[in-house]
Design a protein around this nucleic acid. Structure first.
Lengths: 167, 167
DNA sequence: TAGACGTAGA
DNA sequence: TCTACGTCTA
């Protein structure tokens, strides 16, 4: 989001409420939620360090959501996508993965969008701000390293469920 | 463009004039010019046969434009794209290539959009209706077969140049 | 499920 | 130049 004020690209977005839904990734771009057309992790250089500012969970990796305020988000790379036909490798702590780690170290808030399926048509829903609590290493089915970023929803935000009931 | 009246997907599009410009391929979709987000050749089953209804010349293949009312449009497949790293093959007369041949046989009008570069930023410009006059076979640098569809602009349309002067 | 003249940022 | 949790149609 190079067109945005660099000091305002992180945190909540003016005019966007929890539960707001979008049909296309391009719309997430336009409103300023997520600048990447494909990539799940968006990050920016803040105070000389790349920190993650938003993630999209399109359920293409083996993410997990234990409760409504937690999300275990898989790192990118290593051919971790479902249906990929590239030979699997260990994920590396670069790009978005490194930015997620930096967000964890700095306790930097990260926007979360979730792709919701089964409501007739798929939509991306804004779910609010999370903190990266910890990063663990898992193994893919092929035995390769996969990063698991454990996100925890910041308290004081209306629940996604309650906002989705307004549809 | 499954949402459009099947009888109206071919030919000129209501509300779109020659010289109209668009920043994104998705916009070509929305106005009904071209239903494919990536593919250069769009086609539809008309009277039991797949005929090409629109092409986008994004200058990613080795197309040629002899004069302002002709266009030699390369077929797809065979890794004919610039910068592709897939092993080259002969192009096959399938999908869009077959549809282009059918349009030629039926003398069916095809919409042409051209990507114009160098006006500050790139834009897709609607250039009007063409007929596929003939199809020849060329060779790629690697010696593989490449289809060349020779398009001729239908007379009676305002020139693209004159309409672009209105910018 | 695969193919396709995309698109923005690192 | 390359990566990336896209998107539509066949």
């Amino acid at each position: 989001l190079k067109w945005m004020d660099p000091e305002k690209i992180a945190g909540s977005v003016c005019g966007v409420q929890i539960g707001d839904k979008f049909k296309f990734r391009s719309q997430l771009m336009m409103v300023g939620l997520h600048s990447q057309p494909h990539s799940g992790i968006d990050y920016a250089n803040i105070e000389g360090q790349n920190v993650a500012i938003s993630v999209v969970d399109a359920r293409r990796y083996s993410n997990e959501s234990g409760s409504s305020d937690t999300l275990i988000y898989s790192g990118h790379g290593g051919s971790g996508l479902y249906g990929s036909n590239v030979p699997p490798e260990d994920q590396k702590l670069i790009r978005g993965n490194m930015a997620m780690k930096n967000s964890m170290d700095k306790k930097f808030p990260v926007r979360v969008m979730r792709k919701v399926v089964g409501f007739g048509k798929d939509v991306y829903v804004y779910d609010g701000l999370y903190i990266v609590e910890k990063c663990t290493q898992g193994k893919s089915e092929e035995g390769k390293i996969v990063f698991k970023f454990h996100l925890k929803r910041l308290p004081g935000q209306p629940s996604l469920h309650s906002m989705m009931m307004k549809w």
